[in-house]
Design a protein around this nucleic acid. Structure first.
Lengths: 118, 118
DNA sequence: CCCCATGGTTCAAGATTATTGAACTGTTGT
DNA sequence: ACAACAGTTCAATAATCTTGAACCATGGGG
């Protein structure tokens, strides 16, 4: 099930902005922006949502070309398509994440929440 | 009728991204981004929309803090809140507009369309 | 001054889009 | 083989966009 990842050349600004323009999805991207790869449940950790809703948001991010999803064992591992986004829209993700980091110095105090250590 | 412009300190990233995450509103901001001040009808020129719809999108941009609207005579003049946005989210608008300019080298061939010369 | 044309707004209705529970697919561990 | 688990898909409900009609304010003629 290798999902519908758009090729880098077809990533469209409107879709990216739309994807980032939702608080839930922005938080997901933030949590992913340590450069790490996280399972859906770990990336949307703390957000109180039905899992079908989470799935929906991951799909939006995926189809916009913001994240990449790879199935590893039982988990769906997600990461931000950093290089491709930076190449296509230089400075955009940096500016968004810098702004997000400033506006919200949230160090969500997550404790022992199901680690996707694999 | 001095609208609901949020003070600079209350401009929230989520709202800004949401506002920019719509093709119509992005085009409006682009057309405003010559640093000029334009009437609504001029800023949304070329977009084929009911004027109530245009009004709605201008309101979203306004309440997000992206644009400023001032009534001058019979016109509602709009401009981007450049300095405030740059101060609050450095590089964000630059990155977005650079990306938009690259993705779409549209020189919309507008001819003698009702100029808001005032 | 009265009237009307004009630029935008507001309101209520119908048309997209987001959220969610239930049922499902695939993988792992026992 | 089976149960448990991570995510997906589907269909129904809730929320948001779009639009026409009615409206407000301003400015320009008679």
């Amino acid at each position: 099930m290798c999902f519908n990842h758009p090729p880098a050349s077809e990533i469209r600004l409107e879709r990216v902005l739309y994807a980032l323009g939702d608080p839930i999805r922005l938080k997901i991207v933030e949590s992913l922006e340590k450069g790490v790869e996280l399972a859906c449940s770990a990336a949307s950790c703390g957000l109180d949502l039905a899992k079908s809703t989470q799935s929906y948001h991951f799909r939006i991010l995926r189809e916009a070309g913001v994240i990449r999803t790879r199935k590893s064992g039982i988990y769906y591992m997600n990461s931000v398509r950093r290089e491709e986004l930076d190449a296509r829209f230089p400075g955009l993700l940096d500016a968004v994440l810098a702004a997000a980091a400033k506006g919200c110095p949230n160090a969500a105090p997550m404790a022992g929440t199901h680690p996707p250590v694999k």
